[in-house]
Structure formats: C-alpha cells, structure tokens
Design a protein around this nucleic acid. Structure first.
Lengths: 348, 348
DNA sequence: CTAGTCTATGAAAGCGCTTGCATCAAAATT
DNA sequence: AATTTTGATGCAAGCGCTTTCATAGACTAG
C-alpha cells in the first residue's frame, strides 16, 4: 500500500555480523571468533571455509562489540594542542609507528590549546576505549588527573620534563633548554631581549621557557626590565605582529626569541620586511626545529628537539605502563642548540 | 596464602558503568541513559541525583556499548596520505570543525601514501563505527569501493574533481588547475619545463596535474620531449634532490614545476644553494598554497587551493550523505594562481 | 583393549548500553 | 467524580562480540 514505508529494498538491510559468517560457513560463532583472534587454534579446513565466508560477506568485526567482550582495545589516545602547524607532527608520527609495532592503534585528537576542549577530548578518547593517554605538558586541571587516576588510565606527559613534577613524563627540560640558549645569546653581547610566546597561562612549557630566559638573564646580571614579553597565539602571522609591536617600543631588543619556530619565523619575516638585516641588525631564534626552520632565509637558529626519539620512547613507555609495569621516573631527553643563520653578535 | 594472586587490591577493581550510576542514584539504568541522551525527558530532581552520581563515580559512557545499542556513532572517518607535512592540515581542520557543528566526531588516520595502509585504515575506521568516509583522490582498488558499497558507507572523495568520474566528490580539477598554470608559464616564454612530482602510480591527483602540463604544452605546440619528469616522494629534501637531478641533465629547463609546495620549496632551496637567481635564471612553482609557500624567499608562486572551503563543504556533504540525502553530483571548487616571487620571464 | 590426552568445536553467558513497551501516579478534561 | 491524557520511570530484550566450560572424537600409552 504505502511504498514509502519499506526503505531501500534494493539490497540487504543490515551489515554482516559474526553470526552471519558463522551461518554461511556452517560453524559456530565461537569458531569464527577464534579464526580471527587465534587462527592456529582452528583446523585449517574450517579456517579456510570461514575466511571465504568473511570475504563473501564483506565482513568486518565491530570494534565496539569486540572491545566490550574482550575488555581490551589495544588503543591509545593522544591529545595534542594543534594539528594545523606541524610542531607535533613528527613526534606523533614516530609515536604512532612505534605503537603499531606493539600492536596498538593510535587515536589522536586536538584541543586547539583550549583546556575545556582538551578535557572533552580526553573523555572522548576514554569512551572510545583508550587504554592509555599521551598528553602534552603537565598543566591541566587536577580534576582531570584525578578522573584519570580513578579510571586507572595510565597517562604519560610529554614535550616536557620537569624534575619537580612526579608524574611519568618523557621530554626535555624547557627551563634548561631555553636558559642554555639565552646564555649563548648573552655571550654574543645581547642585553635587550624580546620574547614572543604563546600565552603563559595553562602552558607550562611556555612558562618554563620564559623562566629559562629569566634565569639566564639573572645569572648574567641583566635586569628584568631588559626582557620584553609578548603573548600571542601560535601562528606565523601572530609572530609577525608581535615582532612589530616589540620593535615599536622605545627599548628595542637586539634579539627576539621565539617561543617556538612558528612564532620565530613570523618574526623573522616581519624583520626582513621592515628592512632589518639578519642577524646584523637583529637576531631571531626559535624553538623546536621543525622543517620550517631550515627553509626560511636565513635559516633559523633554534633549539633542536629530538621529536622522533621522544615519540618512539613515549610509545614504549606508555605500552609498558598499560601492561602494568611500573615507571615512576621520568625520562629526560637532551636538546641542543641548532646554530644557523639568524643569531649573531649584538649590533653595537 | 598467595598474596600475588589478588591483584591491585588498593582500590576499586572495575570502572563505573551505567548500572553503577543507576544504583548509586537509586534509579533504573534506563533513566540514567535518558539523562545522558534526552535530559528533558527526566524529572529535574532525578536528573540532578543522577548527575551527582555520575560525577561521584567518574563515570564516562562506554562508546562501544552505546554504539552497539543505539546503532549510531555520530562518527566519520578520514584517511589522509600524510600527517607529517601540513598539506592536508588546514582542510581537515575545517572539515572537523564543521563536522562538530553537526554533532559528528572525526577520526583521522593516515596512509603514508601506501594503498595497503589505506585499505587497512579504512577497515579500521569502519570497525570503529565510522558512518561515512572522506578519502583523498579517486584512485584506489575497486574492491574497496565495492566493499564500502556493500556496507553502505557513504564515501566522499576530495582534493580532486574529475568530471569523468561519477562518484560524489568535492574538489578542484587538477588537470585544469595545472594546465592553467602551465599556460601562464608558457606565455612567459618558457619552453623547457621540469616537473617534480609524487609517484604517478596510485595517485590520480599527481597524474592529472601531469596531464594538465602535457595538455597545455600540446596546445602551445611544445614537443613532449621538452618536459622532464622526476618522480619522488613528498619531502623538502626530495624536492632538492630532484631539482639537482633535473638541472644536471643536458636539456636544462627554465622552469621547474613542483607537484606540490613541499617539493617546490625543496627545489627552490636547492636552486638558491646552487647559485641560481630566482626567477631570473630559473623559475619555480608549487601547488596547494600552504603556509610554507609564503615563508620562503622569494615567496613561492603556486596554485592556490581553497582548503578551508573544501573542508567545510566536504563535511556538509558527507553529513547529508549519511542522512540519506542523495548527492549524485560532484562539486567543483575553483583554484587560482597565486603569483608571488618565483615565476618570471624565461631567461633568454 | 581400556584409560588417559589432545584437539576441534559448540553452547551460552555476559560485556555496557538504548529503547519499545508497560506501569503508575498526577494533571487535565469531561 | 469518572475518565482520559500526560509525564516519569522501570523492565527486559537485544546490539555483536569473546571466552569459559563442556563435549565428542581421534590418538597415545600402558
């Protein structure tokens, strides 16, 4: 009567399930399941029949059902601040490769540097069965850590290593890295320093880099007022604006330190645009050593971070954590200064 | 007797479930479920009690169980060729934002430009409940398309638009885009052209860009032998090597076209390193117009692709497809040539 | 030849949720 | 006051899988 009622009668209504495969292959669902999960435990002939049926039906196991029944997902999650620029890309890529070596799948989400988004994404990953989490930096609402602890989800902090924090982490010491760089900068005669950074709030990495600069300046007896700070969000464009702002002030710095390469490259572009000779008139440095740094002209002097090693080790540690192994200590990686063309003697 | 047998007695053994919440709040699981999915259908007092319990227990719904019971996941998947360089980042970001406006979550995977990996990731995404898929380019094993069709998963192709293909797509016409660029190049007097591209195999976008060059050359009566081709994989480094190789030949081109910005930037760097003046001695062009293009010196002339618009529309179309709306036609976006500093008159 | 081992398989319970249907009390309608 | 409607809730059946336990047949050993 009502032809609208029957929907898409043109073909099979539902997706193939384990049971369908079982029926087609004339075995029980248990056997099909075994074929998929421990093939060696089933007779070769049966096995072949089953796989034929699987093919014939375009069957794919339903992850949710499997996770529920097996109480294992072999999945880990990572939430990174941004996907748009490639700060985290290399590290995450390595992380994922190593994870895959251990039979784990990676789910990655991004927070756009917003704590609330991060919290949401963390919950989402957990809901999706992540058995462990990789998070960038230490800073976040203690409630989340508590939540994760309650749910017994191992968490590994990365991209930072802070000796004063106790939770598992693999990364580098941001204070130290930046302090080292600043020390070299000061040795080159610079006395007025500009620092362009992401917002210091909710971002221990940015804060610690700032602290590194301060410490080095203090050690060299430079007064705090010689350091000018501009906070902005990560983008080349913003780096440029920040540079303009800093150079517009009365106390022009002779070196501008970028909180990361993206900001630094923005600053560098603007500097050139404004007619500064680099590094003769003004020096610029970055942090991270992403591909971008090598491609600008002059190439950017920056703090090199061992992205891939960090990602790989992170995967190993997280897998160990998931398998119940203890790992109370953190692991510190060394950064180095990558001297290229943008850092020079302070103009005089 | 055997203290090893009891495992981690230090705390609650299992994660909180809906049932635990129900018990704690003195209601049925049905009510808790309603609180989560249609709060307006439950009494405010009850609701409050339930949410209190949820908090107290650090409860998060189990995605798998929910998906299974509700037969809906509100998830779509995308598999992109690479995450390491940011070719796809902006588009995917926009895709994800728009998806989120429609209440969908995005799962992204990467294939490293390997067909087998892509197939794997597609199945993985399906297993995880993706209700629709965004794929880059048309080229893939027909078996996969068939598989997807059997499972009734809507697929949207993007980053390409080919009038001769019938499946839903949103993108730009790679042949046309590259042909337009080449036409301009030829108008500038160039007669010897080099083309650095990703492998043409399994990559319709690369192939079509190649075709675009060929067509434009034909139209201008340039013989095929005036076009030199180097295939390599995407990286700045490889772009540099390819440039060196091309310039090492006897028939030096006066312009080198990069199949994308990454390759082009590599070529550009090497060109400068080899002492060529750009664009006086040799011109270089890219494709995609990613951030990188603006940052090199001289800034790269490239084909601008409307990444964000493409991502946003892709999300809208895919959601429509999932909701059963018909969308047989593809949607073509316009590319433009972004003239910057690396394309000039052919040297004479 | 019988008891004991294996090996391959099946039956069925249960994983954590949603939802149709039933229930019941309170509000609205007559 | 009797009846109907409405709103809030509970019951219980699955959703698609894995896994324990049981079973039956085929071998091995004594």
């Amino acid at each position: 009567m009502n032809p609208n009622k029957k929907k898409s009668n043109n073909s099979l209504e539902k997706l193939a399930t384990l049971a369908d495969v079982a029926e087609q292959a004339q075995v029980s669902t248990a056997t099909v399941s075994r074929c998929l999960n421990s093939p060696e435990r089933v007779d070769p002939n049966t096995r072949e029949r089953v796989f034929k049926a699987i093919d014939a039906l375009s069957y794919t196991p339903n992850f949710g059902a499997r996770a529920m029944a097996a109480r294992r997902t072999q999945t880990v999650g990572a939430v990174i601040p941004t996907i748009e620029n490639s700060i985290f890309a290399r590290g995450i890529q390595a992380f994922q490769e190593e994870l895959s070596n251990h039979g784990f799948t990676l789910l990655v989400a991004s927070s756009s540097y917003k704590p609330a988004r991060e919290e949401e994404e963390i919950k989402n990953l957990i809901a999706r069965g992540a058995e462990g989490l990789l998070l960038i930096g230490y800073d976040r609402n203690p409630v989340i850590y508590e939540f994760l602890r309650n749910r017994k989800i191992p968490v590994l902090v990365t991209w930072a290593f802070d000796p004063s924090e106790s939770r598992p982490a693999i990364g580098f010491n941001n204070v130290e890295a930046m302090s080292n760089l600043t020390k070299r900068i000061i040795e080159l005669g610079h006395r007025q320093i500009g620092f362009i950074t992401a917002s210091l709030q909710n971002n221990d990495r940015a804060r610690n880099r700032f602290k590194g600069i301060q410490e080095a300046m203090k050690k060299a007896d430079l007064p705090e007022k010689n350091l000018q700070l501009v906070q902005t969000s990560y983008s080349i464009e913003n780096g440029s604006k920040a540079f303009e702002k800093i150079m517009g002030g009365k106390q022009r710095p002779t070196v501008v330190i970028g909180g990361n390469d993206v900001l630094a490259v923005g600053a560098l572009r603007k500097a050139i645009e404004m007619g500064f000779r680099i590094p003769d008139d003004v020096s610029v440095t970055g942090f991270d050593d992403i591909e971008l740094a090598q491609v600008v002209d002059p190439p950017l002097t920056t703090v090199h971070v061992p992205h891939r090693r960090m990602g790989t080790r992170a995967a190993q540690i997280l897998v160990a954590l998931i398998n119940g192994e203890k790992f109370e200590n953190s692991e510190k990686l060394q950064t180095t200064i990558q001297f290229r063309g943008t850092l020079g003697q302070a103009p005089q």
